[in-house]
Amino acid sequence: MEIRILSVGKIKEKYLNDGIGEYAKRLGRYCKLKFIQVPDEKTPDKASEALNTQIREIEGERLQKHIREQDYVIALAINGKMLDSVQLSEKIAALGVQGTSSITFVIGGSLGLSDQILRRADYSLSFSPMTFPHQLMQMILLEQIYRSFRIINHEPYHK
């Protein structure tokens, strides 16, 4: 199975890149992992809602260019469905059994995802009603995907 992480913005912090690298290395034995990053738009302080929407749309168009027809798209959205780790592993396993060969997780920028991306998504996933920095979210997501594959393969992982 191919897991694609499609995100807005470049991760500049070394500690996040180190963590992401560690989980990417661990995931190598379970899936083919691919990272795709698109540029983020500068968001001025106190931007109007109209400007925020325009920025989300521009970033959404950049993301959309990397979503293939065959991808099962999981959008990370604050109002998506919350799953625990076992439920996420069951979701990934079920997709594999159904013949899904590529899952694309989409992480928006600081303003979230455009309506266009949310409409294209096959599933919306929320990690919490709290807001996380989108750069940190990539590492959290990878840890949960890694945990999912450990669960799917009946391998121990700390709780």
Rank of each mutant, 00 (worst) to 15 (best):
M1G: 12
M1C: 11
I3V: 12
R4D: 04
I5S: 04
I5P: 04
S7L: 05
S7N: 08
K12T: 12
L16T: 00
N17G: 01
D18N: 14
D18E: 15
D18Q: 14
G19S: 13
G19M: 12
G21M: 12
G21H: 11
Y23D: 00
K25N: 09
G28N: 12
R29Q: 13
Y30N: 08
L33F: 05
K34T: 11
F35T: 06
I36V: 14
Q37F: 11
V38M: 00
D40V: 01
K42M: 06
K42E: 10
K42Q: 08
D45I: 14
A47E: 06
E49D: 14
A50E: 15
L51S: 06
L51K: 12
E57A: 12
E59C: 04
G60S: 00
R62I: 02
L63Q: 03
Q70V: 12
A75H: 04
L76F: 01
A77M: 07
I78P: 05
G80H: 02
K81W: 05
M82S: 14
D84M: 09
D84N: 15
E90N: 14
A93V: 08
A94R: 13
V97I: 15
V97D: 13
Q98V: 07
T100N: 10
T100S: 09
G108H: 02
G108F: 02
S110L: 15
L111W: 09
L118Y: 08
R120P: 04
Y123I: 05
S124E: 10
S126G: 06
S128I: 08
P129C: 09
M130D: 10
T131A: 09
P133V: 08
L136N: 07
I140H: 00
I140S: 00
L142S: 02
Q144L: 02
Y146H: 08
Y146D: 03
R147G: 06
N153F: 05
E155W: 01
H158A: 06
H158F: 06
H158S: 05
